[in-house]
Each structure stands twice: as structure tokens, then as C-alpha cells.
């Protein structure tokens, strides 16, 4: 098995452990889109732990980017400029709130809890992502 896949598996184990720890500590499904969305509202009583979680995500990533070339690998797919990222941000923000979760909330926690709605959401966003990449490749000539 390729080394990259092992790192994927190890990273996945860390993500799973983080999700279990956060769910255990807060009794809230720790989806990143939900944590971020609700952290936008400072009146929320859970504001502080949400900010702490997000700060941790940025802090550990910042350290690993500095000390690990593997973690620091960062390539922008061909044909994606800043306009593409602005549109992507709008769609991801709107879509995750409309659909009630993202890759972590539905994909890891929801599927891990055996929730039927999360399994369906995960299939839908994966297929939508694949179709988008395919169409982008057809139109722009690059993936």
C-alpha cells in the first residue's frame, strides 16, 4: 500500500478521535460547518468552545505546515482562480446549512452513528462533487 494511504488512514484516525472527544465533551454533533456557522453568533451560549475548537484546528495545522513537508503539500487544481474559490465558498456555506452538515458532520459523525439522512447526504455531495469535477474537466480541459 502506498505511503500516502497510510497517512490518510492515520489522519482519519485522528479525525475520528477528535470527533468522539468533541461529541463526548459537548454532547453536540461536531460537524465543522455547524461549529463554524454557530460560532458566527456570539450570543450563543456555546460560543466559547466552538471558538476554542476552531482555534485548535488552525493552530495544529499551522505547526504541522511548518514542520512537515507532507502536511504542507498544497496544490491548486488547474483552472481555479480566486473567483472559483469565492463561488465555492458561497456554495459550500449555503449548501452545508441548507443540508445540515458537511464532510465531517454528515460524512463522519452521521454515518458513524448510522443516521440514514447523513448516509444519503454523503452520497449526494460525493456524487455532486464528482459530477462537478467531471464537468469542469470537460469545459475547462483540466481537473
Amino acid at each position: 500500500m502506498e505511503e500516502t494511504y497510510w497517512y490518510g488512514l492515520i489522519g482519519g484516525v485522528l479525525i475520528g478521535a477528535a470527533s468522539v472527544l468533541a461529541l463526548w465533551a459537548t454532547s453536540k454533533i461536531p460537524g465543522i460547518s455547524g461549529i463554524f456557522a454557530k460560532a458566527l453568533n456570539p450570543r450563543d451560549g456555546d460560543f466559547k468552545w466552538r471558538i476554542a475548537f476552531l482555534a485548535g484546528m488552525i493552530l495544529s495545522a499551522a505547526i504541522l505546515f511548518l514542520i512537515s513537508d507532507r502536511a504542507d503539500t498544497y496544490r491548486i487544481p488547474e483552472g481555479r482562480g480566486w473567483i472559483a474559490y469565492a463561488i465555492a465558498g458561497l456554495l459550500v456555506g449555503f449548501g452545508t446549512r441548507c443540508g445540515g452538515g458537511c464532510t465531517s458532520g454528515h460524512g463522519v459523525c452521521g454515518v458513524g452513528l448510522g443516521a440514514r439522512d447523513s448516509i444519503i447526504a454523503t452520497i449526494v455531495f460525493m456524487v455532486a462533487g464528482m459530477v462537478t469535477v467531471y464537468l469542469f474537466k470537460m469545459i475547462g480541459g483540466a481537473a
Binding site: 500516502t4 497517512y7 490518510g8 488512514l9 492515520i10 489522519g11 482519519g12 484516525v13 485522528l14 479525525i15 478521535a17 477528535a18 470527533s19 472527544l21 468533541a22 465533551a25 461536531p30 465543522i32 476554542a52 475548537f53 476552531l54 482555534a55 485548535g56 484546528m57 488552525i58 493552530l59 495544529s60 495545522a61 504541522l64 505546515f65 512537515s68 507532507r70 502536511a71 504542507d72 503539500t73 465531517s104
Partner: peptide, 14 residues
């Protein structure tokens, strides 16, 4: 701590 673990997992896994 959970956020730190999550960020580490995301970066290490690529």
C-alpha cells in the same frame, strides 16, 4: 484539544 487533533488529522492525511 479536539480541534488540534482534527487539524492534525486533516493536514497529515493530505
Amino acid at each position: 484539544l479536539a480541534g488540534c487533533l482534527f487539524g492534525a488529522g486533516l493536514t497529515l492525511s493530505g
